[in-house]
Structures are given as structure tokens and as C-alpha cells.
Amino acid sequence: MKAAAKKNRFLHALYEYRVAYAYIAPFFLLFAIFNLFPMVYGFFLSFFRWDGMSAMHFIGIENYVNLLKDVLFWKAFKNTLFMGIIAHIPILLGGLVLAYILNSKLVKGQNIFKTIYFMPMVTSSVAITIIFSNLFGYNYGLINWFLSLFGEAPINWLGGDGSLIRVAVIVMFAWKWIGWNMVIYLAGMQGISNDIYEAAEIDGANHVQIVFRILIPLLKPIILFTLIQSTIGMFNLFTEPFVLTGSSWTGGTNNGGLTLMIYLLNKAPQGGTAYGYASAVAYVITVFIVIISFVLNNTMTDKDPYEGKKKRRKSA
């Protein structure tokens, strides 16, 4: 009886607000087709061995077990994390400093700088990689030429024992994301009322105090947003190391530039046809992203100085 009534109420609501539902339907339909279905199907696939064409074979959690036992997977994980974390130092600091300079009205032509700094984000990563491979070239590279002016021997950035390729990838990754972060921070800074700055100045606060006591605390939610975005970007690192290592699935000498995304695409669909295994890899990467986002979210919001007050006010 109850269930029937509930169902009736649901249908009634559906009918009553049919126009509203029709308006929001396109998003949910597209989301279901292009996001929800692949997500669910990918999870389902990760328990199978399947070459994308012939019959699917259920193998339980074997893909996950093999994956967690694979030395290369952990190497790729370490590389990705290493490159991502180091790159975040210039991304965060550079983005904030640039945004602060542009916001302080010391510079004219704010929009021109905004566009220029944002360019790397929308430029084809293949084109960028070609330019950077010229910079980091062994025999003709610009950087090695510069070193040679000081009598230094050329460094094989992209070859050698494979460890220096990470430097090249970090530089490219940071260069790409600084502009994006800057634009977002700038928008955030412009959203902070001038009254607050003025009040601080009247109270005798200096620039450093304004930045650390006012600007950064107020920007926290925005910094969190950019951090999560660039963390996802970090796990998606593929084109840069792949092209720098001559489109090799090894990630370069000693797997120095092997990232999780190269590892994944090597299994399917680009380097092989192990679709089930690749799905399992994708799910493990997703879990990593969720964990990191969760940790970031918690650590950053817990430090919010206004959080405690809000809660108290609510309970009162």
C-alpha cells in the first residue's frame, strides 16, 4: 500500500513539474550516456579479460591482484606522484604571485597578460612538447647550449639514465598549469572586497600581513579547487612524457618518465588490447584521485578560521 502511494506521489510530482524536468533532462541524459554508462561499464569490465572484440571472460579480481603486484605500476605511481608534487610548488607559488602582481594594479594590460599566461592551457600539448624537446635536446638543445657557455658538458636530459626526463616533464607541467591557476586566483582575488584591504591598511597591516592573513585565507576554497584540478591533471600526465621519450611505452630509459596514464594506455586501447586490465588500472587511479581530493578537502577546510564560529552559531 505504502509503496504504491509513494510511487503515485513520485509520478504525480513528475507530472506536476514536467516542464522543469524536461528542461533539466538533456544534461542528465547526456551525463547518463557519456559519463555514467562508461563509468559503470568500466567497473564491470575490470573483472573480465577482454580484447575488445572476442568473448569476455570473467576472472574475478585477478586484474586488481596482478595490478597491485606489478612493479611497473608502482614505478609509474611513484613517478607520477614525484613529478606532480614537485611541479605543484611552482604552480601554487607562481600562480599566486603572478595573480597578486596583476591584481595589485602595478601592471598595465592585465588582460593581455592573462591571455598570454593562459595560452599554454589551450595549446596542443604535442606542439608544446616539440618546442620543449628542442629546449631539452642533447646535442642542439638551447639549455645545453647555454650550459656550454659556462664550459659545462652537455646533459642528456631526455636520455642518460632516465632520471632527468622528469625535470623536463615537471617544467612543462608547471609551465602549463601556472597560467590556469593564475587566472583562477585572479578571479578569486577580484572577488574579495576592497573594503577588507582598506580596513587592514588603516589598521597598519603591511603587504606580507595582508597576503598571509587576508588574501590566502579568503582564497582557500579557490586554492583547493585548483589543487584538485591540477591533481587530476597530474594523474592524466601522458602526452608530455610520451612524446619526449619518442612515443615509447617504456617512458624512457629505466622507465624514468613512465606515468600512470602511459602505463594505462599501454594496456589498452593504444598500446594493446587488454581492456579489462586497463579498466582496473583506471579504477585504481580514480580511487587515488578520490583519496587525494578527500585529504585535500579535509586538511584545508579544517584550518578555516571561520569554520569554528559558523558551527557555534548554528548550534546556538
Partner: peptide, 9 residues
């Protein structure tokens, strides 16, 4: 040269 044969170098 110690570089990839398809590299720009």
C-alpha cells in the same frame, strides 16, 4: 648522437 631517430634533433 644518443637521441631517438625520430626526434627533432
Amino acid at each position: 648522437m644518443n637521441v631517438d631517430m625520430w626526434s627533432a634533433e
